[in-house]
């Protein structure tokens, strides 16, 4: 996605859980990439959003070092993914990594459950109601009310299932009257 950034010669899928068997360099690069803010919701980082899947460093026979980053989109059509990839490349280039490639992976599909507790807190703080946890079968318990991020009331109503971005729904608080975005469960 950036000139000069070529995929690693023979990329192999990481056989283990992300983070397993990670080197100190990989950990550092993962921290840097994960700290990149989401382009649409800059209050949360990519790590908090749960879209950074893996960071691997691969060495070719001649000692050439390539960094391979795996990102997963929130929605398949999310246009922010290209900006995320460019931002990550830039950060890692600045850190001295010359060969960085960012690839998109779809499996397993991203879920709003991948947003960290800290990410949820920051969303709420910035006026976006965080998603509710999904059950093992993917359903959301109806009894879990969506709380107004402005006044805290649970008396809120749906205005539209679709809002300013694909990942949000538009709601209104019937207590304070303010409309707000809700990060809808996926």
């Amino acid at each position: 996605m950036v000139t000069g950034a070529r995929p690693a010669p023979s990329p192999t899928p990481s056989p283990t859980e992300p983070g397993a068997g990670e080197t100190a360099l990989e950990r550092e690069l993962r921290r840097l990439a994960g700290a990149v803010p989401d382009p649409e919701l800059p209050v949360v980082s990519l790590a908090e959003l749960g879209v950074l899947r893996d960071v691997r460093v691969e060495y070719a026979g001649d000692g050439h070092r390539a960094v391979r980053v795996e990102l997963t989109p929130t929605y398949t059509g999310c246009p922010a993914i290209e900006t995320m990839a460019t931002d990550i490349e830039q950060v890692l280039h600045t850190h001295g990594e010359r060969d960085v490639s960012v690839v998109t992976v779809l499996s397993p599909p991203w879920s709003t459950d991948d947003i960290s507790a800290e990410g949820r807190r920051k969303l709420d703080e910035s006026g976006i109601a965080p998603p509710r946890p999904r059950g093992a079968d993917g359903t959301v318990a109806l009894s879990l009310a969506i709380r107004c991020p402005h006044c805290g009331s649970t008396a809120t109503e749906l205005l539209s299932r679709f809002s300013s971005t694909a990942c949000k729904a538009l709601r209104r608080c019937t207590a304070c009257g303010e409309p707000f975005d809700h990060f809808k469960e996926l």
Partner: peptide
């Protein structure tokens, strides 16, 4: 709201197509 909803559905489908 419907303008936004239809555009969102269109965007999802475009992402799937790509």
């Amino acid at each position: 709201e419907e303008e936004v909803a239809l555009a969102n559905i269109a965007l999802d489908l475009l992402g799937q197509a790509r």
